[in-house]
Design a protein around this nucleic acid. Structure first.
Lengths: 107, 107
DNA sequence: TTGTTATTTGGCAATATGGCCAATATTTGA
DNA sequence: TCAAATATTGGCCATATTGCCAAATAACAA
C-alpha cells in the first residue's frame, strides 16, 4: 500500500466509521426526510441528549450533516444525498446474506 | 426508535462497521478488480498475515467477500458489486468537504 | 512420514469508542 | 435580572477494536 493509497483508504474509512453506528444510521435515515432538532432526534434515538449530541458532532465532523441554530434549538440537515443510495447498497448486502442463509437451510 | 427500526439500524451499522477500516477499504477496492489470495493482499496492505486474515474474516462474516481454497492458498472475492458505488458516494462526501474547506479559505 | 508453505486462531497490550452524569454555555421570555 | 429550555463539553468507566507474536491447522511435495 503506497502513501497515496494509504491516505485514500484512511479518508474513506473515516467517513464510513462516522456512519457505522446504529444511532447514527438511524439519524441519517430520519434526516433524509427533513431536518430535525437535537431534542427530536434524541426522542427518536432513545438515548441521553448528550449522547445524541456527540453522535451528531461525529456526523458533522465527517461532513455528513450540517447544523443551524434556531432559537434555543439546533436543527440538523443531511448534507450528502447519495448516502441514501449507500444505505440501499448496505441493505442489499443484508438481503443477499439472508438469501444465502435460506439456501443453506433448504440444503 | 421502535424495535423494527432498532434492528434495522443495527444490521446496517454492522455492515458499515465491517467496511470502516483503512485496510478493509483497500482490500475491497483491490478485490473489485479480481480475486486475490491472503498472501497477495497481505503484501498490498503491508501488515502481518494474521492481521490481514482477521480483516478478511470480518469482511467474510459481513457477507462482503467470499473465500475459496486453492491448494494451500485461500482466494477471496468481492461478493457485493454495489459496494464500489458505495465507495464512490463516500468519495463524493470527501470531495464536497474539500470544496467547503476551499470556499472557507477564499472567504 | 516429514518438511514447507499458506492460513487461521488464541492471547495479550495498547488504544478507541460509547454512554451516562454533571457542569457549562446560549437563547428566550417572564 | 432570573429562570427555563436546549445543546454542548468534560469526566469517568465499561467495552470493543486493532495489531503483533506464537501456536495450531491444512494442503502439498519430497
Amino acid at each position: 500500500m503506497n502513501d497515496l493509497e494509504k491516505r485514500r483508504s484512511e479518508g474513506r474509512a473515516a467517513i464510513l466509521k462516522a456512519l457505522a453506528h446504529p444511532s447514527r444510521v438511524l439519524i441519517v435515515e430520519k434526516l433524509s426526510a427533513k431536518p430535525y432538532c437535537v431534542c427530536e432526534l434524541t426522542a427518536m434515538v432513545g438515548a441521553d441528549t448528550s449522547t445524541v449530541s456527540k453522535h451528531l458532532s461525529i456526523l458533522r465532523n465527517a461532513g455528513i450533516v450540517s447544523d443551524s441554530k434556531q432559537g434555543t434549538s439546533v436543527y440538523y440537515s443531511l448534507e450528502a444525498p447519495c448516502l441514501l443510495r449507500l444505505l440501499d447498497c448496505v441493505e442489499s448486502v443484508i438481503q443477499q446474506n439472508l438469501q444465502r442463509q435460506l439456501s443453506y437451510l433448504k440444503a
